[in-house]
């Protein structure tokens, strides 16, 4: 089939891609033009082209700010702890769900586990306040009524870390199971039966069949997660955090919000954005490389 005939016959397939391609060109590649703001003294009224070049001055200013290092440390710390705590949670949940044979119970528990994912962080913030407050939170009301000391879940920085992580697990673990459950359906059922006949118990089956079957999924997710190490969502730390624990709760995204949007210093905010993008790229490539060497699984 000549190229001409091929295109005449299948042009619709290519036409279908025009929309998604233009989306990426306009919204993902177009904005790269704006990176030059990081090297300019950006003036709102002159626009990008009218603003003056300042070289690396803005980088020097950002790297000289104490808050930058604190928020950078907190971003990495919260993400790393999240990886330790929140990453295995959906995996374990998915395996537990997979082992269930009663269909209605399985469906019911899945639904219950998904729901938190659909609640906005602002509302979760309100719930957290009601549940974990020191003066009149539910848990502390219980503790004090039986004569125990109240625990400052939200106002002591270490207690707050635990609260932050567990709320994250509660919110996202159920939703995270979906991808594992999908991968699990791809494992050949005969493997389990054969293993059963050979005398493998439930734990052995999980160890030798389920987990190896999930390995590619786990690794892909891990690489993606590592790529996000340097960036952090805005809502969760902003809503759950408070002044008493700012030492830990102030992260790059809240810092950018304060500097970029609230104080209108777009140049500095762009510098931080660029920094995050570069470090994120290094993380993704690095973890991809390591994974390729160690396990032969990779996403690139």
């Amino acid at each position: 089939m000549s190229m001409g005939v091929y295109f005449r016959r299948y042009w619709q397939l290519y036409a279908l891609l025009v929309l998604p391609l233009s989306y990426f060109l306009i919204f993902k590649y177009g904005p790269i033009y704006g990176i030059q703001i990081a090297f300019k003294d950006f003036n709102l009224f002159q626009g990008i082209n009218g603003s003056e070049w300042i070289g690396f001055d803005a980088f020097k200013e950002v790297f000289g700010m104490r808050d930058f290092y604190i928020t950078l440390r907190n971003t990495l710390m919260l993400n790393f702890l999240d990886l330790l705590v929140s990453f295995p949670a959906p995996l374990i949940l998915a395996i537990m769900l997979y082992e269930l044979k009663t269909a209605w119970f399985k469906k019911l528990s899945q639904t219950i586990l998904y729901i938190p994912h659909f609640i906005s962080w602002v509302i979760i913030g309100g719930i957290v306040y009601q549940v974990f407050g020191t003066q009149s939170g539910m848990i502390n009301n219980l503790l004090t009524s039986v004569g125990l000391e109240a625990i400052p879940f939200l106002t002591d920085k270490n207690d707050w870390l635990v609260t932050y992580l567990l709320v994250g697990v509660w919110q996202s673990a159920g939703w995270g199971t979906i991808i594992y459950l999908a991968a699990l359906t791809g494992i050949n059922k005969e493997l389990f039966e054969a293993a059963g006949i050979d005398g493998a118990g439930r734990l052995k089956r999980i160890w030798h069949i389920t987990l190896p079957g999930l390995k590619p999924t786990i690794i892909v997710l891990l690489i993606i997660n590592l790529g996000h190490m340097i960036s952090i969502g805005f809502e969760r730390p902003y809503v759950i955090g408070n002044l008493a624990v700012r030492e830990y709760s102030d992260v790059l995204s809240t810092f950018v919000y304060r500097i970029g949007i609230q104080s209108g210093q777009y140049t500095l905010a762009t510098v931080i954005g660029l920094f995050q993008a570069v470090v994120g790229l290094v993380f993704v490539l690095g973890s991809n490389y390591v994974s390729k060497k160690l396990t032969d699984e990779s996403i690139l």
Binding site: P31, Y33, I37, F234, A269, I272
Partner: peptide, 8 residues
Amino acid sequence: RFIASKTS
């Protein structure tokens, strides 16, 4: 929009 891509 470039700055915006940093936070939702």
